[in-house]
Design a protein around this nucleic acid. Sequence first.
DNA 1: TACTTTATCAATCCAAAGATGTAAGACAAA
DNA 2: TTTGTCTTACATCTTTGGATTGATAAAGTA
Lengths: 230, 230
Amino acid sequence: MREFKRKSRILLIDDNADHLRGVKELITLESSYDVVGATTSVNMGISLAKKYRPDIILMDINMPEKDGLQAIQELEKLDLGVKVIALSGYDDADLIFRAMKLGAKGYVLKTMASAQLIYAIDEVASGKIYLPTALTSRFFEYFQRSFKEETQTSNEENLLTYLTAREEEVLELLTQGNNYKGIAGKLFISETTVKTHVNNIFQKLQVNDRTQAVLYALNNGFANRKAIRA
Amino acid sequence: MREFKRKSRILLIDDNADHLRGVKELITLESSYDVVGATTSVNMGISLAKKYRPDIILMDINMPEKDGLQAIQELEKLDLGVKVIALSGYDDADLIFRAMKLGAKGYVLKTMASAQLIYAIDEVASGKIYLPTALTSRFFEYFQRSFKEETQTSNEENLLTYLTAREEEVLELLTQGNNYKGIAGKLFISETTVKTHVNNIFQKLQVNDRTQAVLYALNNGFANRKAIRA
DNA sequence: TACTTTATCAATCCAAAGATGTAAGACAAA
DNA sequence: TTTGTCTTACATCTTTGGATTGATAAAGTA
């Protein structure tokens, strides 16, 4: 490791000029970070990011011109290795979830105390992810709710449990887009045997054709089931 | 609100009898919680949960007999309103992720200081979600990685963009398990026209049959695409 | 041992899916 | 106006899919 402990470089993007100035001063005065840019334009911000390669970007995500969330997505796609911290006025669960999903390394509220903002930057700069406790709870409630809906369908009764091991193998190959011939070749059995298995699968899953069988499998955690068993 | 501030009731499930006893004593002596049960058997634990309706369950998820994760899932399905805290010896990202996904309200390590365990229980009892900072980071790294892979595929080139509006409609009906007749009926066009569209879809998506087309659609954010446009 | 489940294979038959070529009307852009 | 794309439609033909029935052998279970 040739390089170590140089000042982390920060880029600020916030369409509110006053807030932008305030944060810039705060960071300049109260921390050892190097503000390499501060702009009220999202597009300008992305350009600056490409040019100056900051370590961290503080990104306001409540902006009219272009959505800050979209900007995060674009930055992640560019793969500059920059750590984006989302700045927002709202502690809305959906916003938090989307920001984190898109790759934000932190999410802080504008109403936060300045010392805490510096702390958040410190944490993210050191490679961690920072979310205030209250927002972490918000996030997880949202996260679990969205997954609950997914598994809920299998709540009544998961017909996949009735499949034999062999039928599961066949179904897996079906979910990979194989036809009878392909499955027969991969399992080293005759095509007619495959047909028998597939027919049994249809009966058990109460569907009429392979597409419906595949959809049933995917919608009822077929992949997960295998992962757990393995 | 008729009832308020009664002692929260806790159920302990841990196949390690020593650890079980230790935790039980800790909670009995150092907190105001009421331990309503303590068992080394997962199945017994679930039965006790149904019987005594505890507020909180401390569940060891590294058990041989039956996977603790599966137990969490079952408990969530039963919808007893119990808050499960996962207890584990490992800070493995995948384990944490799966536990939280299944509805755990907290995840604590067995190596944790006892005061911190009590704190975790306090937090969860008050309706929050508790994850130690280090584990939160682990979780989010895993979380973001899994989402990055999802969006990454559509990064190269999404063949779905070449579909016309009508073809998208047809594809959507395909992803719902419809056959030619079904699609024709729903779009008020002839079956032969549907065949034409479907064939064009195959060409554009470079697949051979409807199952592969459906799989391509699902794996390349077809649902999302629609959502964004709407 | 008798019974059940599972996996294997076959033959037959009909329906559905898919490939290919052709074409007409609508509509928008050049 | 011409060109091109999109949507609609049909005919024909081949392939694949799916239903049904029946049969055998192995493995496990009561």
